[in-house]
C-alpha cells in the first residue's frame, strides 16, 4: 500500500522551492519604485478644479496662459522709449574732455558712426554743423562710394 504523505513529516521551508529573482533585483527595486512615485505626487498636487480637466485641456490652458503672459507684458511695456539717459549723461561731460578722450584713447570716429548717430537723432548736427546744403552735397560727392552706404 502506498504510504500517505503527511505535511508535518515533510521538511518545512520558509518558502516554496522557486527560482530566485535575478541577481541584484532587490538592490534595483527601490530605485524602480521610487521612479514611479513622482507621477503620483504630481497628480496629488493638482488643484481640485484642474483635476476635472483632461490632460489635453490642461496643456491647452497652460499654453494660453503663457502666450497671454507674453502678450500682456508686451502691451504693458509700450513703445520703445528713446534712450535719453545716455545722451543726457554725455551732455554733462565738458566738450574739451570729450575731445581729449577721443584724441588720446585711440578710438576713431568713422563716417558710419556719424551716419548712425545722425539717423538716430536727426537734429543733432544742427548744434555744430553749420554748412549749407550745397556744401554738404559737395562734401558727400568727395566721399568714396562705399562710405556713403549709411548716408
Amino acid at each position: 500500500m502506498k504510504p500517505s504523505f503527511k505535511l508535518d513529516a515533510h521538511p518545512r521551508r520558509p518558502r516554496p522551492l522557486l527560482s530566485e529573482p535575478p541577481a541584484g533585483y532587490f538592490d534595483a527595486l527601490p530605485t524602480q519604485i521610487m521612479a514611479r512615485l513622482p507621477q503620483a505626487a504630481a497628480r496629488a498636487t493638482v488643484p481640485g478644479w484642474l483635476a476635472w480637466l483632461t490632460p489635453a485641456l490642461r496643456t491647452s490652458l497652460a499654453s494660453v496662459t503663457v502666450l497671454g503672459g507674453f502678450a500682456a507684458s508686451f502691451y504693458l511695456s509700450g513703445p520703445a522709449q528713446p534712450a535719453t539717459a545716455a545722451t543726457a549723461s554725455l551732455d554733462a561731460v565738458p566738450r574739451t574732455e570729450l575731445v581729449g578722450y577721443l584724441l588720446t584713447s585711440g578710438a576713431r570716429v568713422e563716417n558710419s558712426d556719424l551716419a548712425v548717430l545722425a539717423a538716430a537723432h536727426p537734429n543733432i548736427t544742427k548744434g555744430f554743423l553749420h554748412a549749407s546744403a550745397e556744401e554738404v552735397a559737395d562734401a558727400l560727392d568727395e566721399q568714396p562710394s562705399e562710405d556713403l552706404t549709411y548716408l
Binding site: R15, P16, L18, P21, F26, L29, P30, I33, M34
Partner: peptide, 14 residues
C-alpha cells in the same frame, strides 16, 4: 521599501 520589499515580493511570488 528596503525593509519590506523581500517579504512583499515573496508573498506575491507564492
Amino acid at each position: 521599501v528596503r525593509k519590506y520589499q523581500s517579504k512583499v515580493y515573496w508573498h506575491v511570488r507564492k
